[in-house]
Nucleic acid binder design. Structure first.
Lengths: 144, 144
DNA sequence: GCAAAAAATAGCCGAAAGTATGAGTGAAAA
DNA sequence: TTTTCACTCATACTTTCGGCTATTTTTTGC
């Protein structure tokens, strides 16, 4: 491309020279062409070879700690509160939003039994509503 | 002494030779100077006038966030579910384990009103128990 | 300004939850 | 062997919830 354009330019100049139109100013035109050519070369060089400015943007990606994964119940707290297996089982079912009736059906006991367990649970956790029990249990890491 | 004079003579001869070359090829040197000058001009122009090439590198920095601190409710979810201010208020009180009666007293309305709000809340959250509503609301980042 | 929509309010009733009390059973510990 | 204790169940009662319906107030769109 470069050589072709140069050739064309030369051809043009030759032609003009032959025509004797620019014969008197040939030198000035020649110099001008050289100037333009090398200015272009300079620009091209600068654009090609200049190093890009590397701008580093740090994007903060929030990762919410998921309670569910790798949950381990706080055994020391559990034994401290003297929660039995059954109570813990019911606590978990309670946390899942089941009704007493559903819990009873799930662990094959009567409704009364579930209520009794609830009562003991509430007393041990020092609350008086299932929802508070669940809240407290989560806070104490007894359940996920 | 002799060698020094010899060296000087040689140096002189070389210098004369160089001068002669310069004289003979004055035109070429002139063109060369023009070329160098305008190449520099081109480079200068390019660097001055062109926009700097900025390469942006995005680095993701993982930040583990505790849910409880700096909690911001998910407004988009809230508007998506069409939860009113009152409903949201009650949802928060519900999550704290308060009874309907306590909530009614807290926001100075009748027990019936609280119940109605609850009901609308349950419907919007597609649950049918307060405890499930609280669970779901936490999951959806509606409440801390 | 007015009609429609949304929000807030309320009462009723059956179901569920919670309270209190008592008691039976079986396994493990003293 | 007796005692202890977790687990179970039952009854009776009160409180709280959830579902339904309806009215009033506020907001919104035309």
């Amino acid at each position: 491309m470069y050589s072709i354009s140069l050739a064309l330019l030369l051809f043009l100049l030759k032609w003009l020279e032959l025509r004797l139109i620019v014969f008197d100013h040939f030198f000035e035109i020649y110099i001008g062409c050289i100037a333009v050519l090398f200015t272009s070369l300079g620009i091209w060089l600068a654009l090609k070879l200049s190093k890009p400015i590397i701008k580093t943007v740090v994007v903060e990606k929030e990762i919410f700690v998921n309670r569910n994964e790798n949950f381990v119940p706080d055994q020391s707290k559990i034994s401290e509160l003297e929660l039995s297996k059954r109570e813990l089982e019911i606590l978990n079912l309670l946390a899942q939003g089941h009704s007493n009736q559903e819990i009873a059906a799930a662990i094959f006991v009567s409704l009364s039994t579930v209520k009794t367990h609830n009562q003991n649970l509430f007393e041990k956790l020092q609350v008086n509503r299932r929802i508070q029990a669940v809240e407290k249990a989560k806070k104490l890491n007894l359940i996920p």
